[in-house]
């Protein structure tokens, strides 16, 4: 892969960014909805931490920060779905995928680039406002050091990579299931529950907590949050996230080549 293909994927990513940027009304609607959900969640967390201060090792301000972080990352990391996977599944279902396979580009990298563009836009377009709203009107715990913020952004980036790898696998299931909606739903559920979106993973009791924190979904929200809140060492977190990303992307490649053989056999 040379400079030329690097440029190709950069263009694909820019396209992904622009594509979502055109829907201003939808973005505004999403910001509104994220803010409302943040409001609802933040009051339940406040009540929870009122009852048990230091629950899961967080103080109240950290818990509040976690809520708004969740709303800020929900769309960007497609925790509840909403990325490229619907489109890829539709292309597989209609057979248009055959066209993609003849493109002089790698299927996985192509979609990764497009999804990265989308993620960056949604982090800026949909994440910043709810987070700023939360920080203004509720007591939050934000770090002062630039290095922590930088480490946080790295963790978000790795989280996006893991999120992509997971959704890519789900989307490829459409090669075997005629209609992948069911898989999609299951993936969203796993994403919402195991990422900490419904409840921070450090609040989960005992062995259950141990298990969910070891699963790949904890890379999406829990890991970046703990880096930002100073509850986890950045390097260890990066290694954990990167390990899952590499493993899942590799599985994705294996599945992809199996699926491609299938398409070739079927003649598209």
């Amino acid at each position: 892969m040379g400079v030329g293909s690097g440029r190709l994927y950069a263009a694909v990513a820019a396209g992904g960014f622009r594509r979502y940027a055109t829907y201003r009304v939808a973005t505004a609607a999403g910001v509104f909805t994220n803010t409302v959900f943040g409001l609802i969640l933040v009051y339940t967390y406040l009540a929870l931490w009122d009852e048990r201060p230091q629950l899961g090792g967080y103080d109240q301000a950290q818990a509040v920060t976690f809520v708004w972080l969740g709303q800020a990352l929900l769309a960007a990391l497609a925790i509840g779905g909403g990325g490229f996977e619907d489109e890829l599944m539709e292309r597989i279902r209609t057979g248009d995928i055959a066209v993609d396979l003849y493109r002089p580009a790698d299927l996985q990298l192509w979609w990764l680039a497009a999804d990265a563009g989308r993620a960056v836009f949604q982090l800026l377009g949909r994440g910043v406002v709810p987070f700023a709203f939360g920080s203004l009107f509720f007591p939050v715990a934000l770090p002062r050091e630039v290095s922590t913020w930088a480490a946080f952004l790295v963790a978000v980036g790795l989280g996006a990579l893991v999120s992509f790898a997971l959704r890519y696998l789900v989307a490829l299931s459409a090669f075997w299931l005629m209609d992948g909606t069911g898989m999609l739903h299951m993936a969203w559920i796993a994403g919402l529950f195991c990422s900490g979106m419904l409840l921070p993973l450090n609040v989960f009791p005992g062995a259950l907590g141990e298990v969910v924190r070891a699963l790949p979904w904890s890379s999406l929200l829990q890991a970046p949050a703990d880096v930002l809140l100073g509850e986890a060492a950045p390097l260890g977190t990066f290694v954990f996230q990167a390990a899952w990303a590499v493993a899942l992307l590799a599985v994705g490649r294996l599945v992809q080549s199996a699926a491609t053989r299938r398409v070739v056999v079927q003649g598209g």
Binding site: L177, G180, T181, G182
Partner: peptide, 13 residues
């Protein structure tokens, strides 16, 4: 298959 999965998914969610 998808119907069963989505129904179960809805319930599980």
């Amino acid at each position: 298959t998808s119907f069963v999965l989505t129904t179960f998914g809805n319930f599980a969610m």
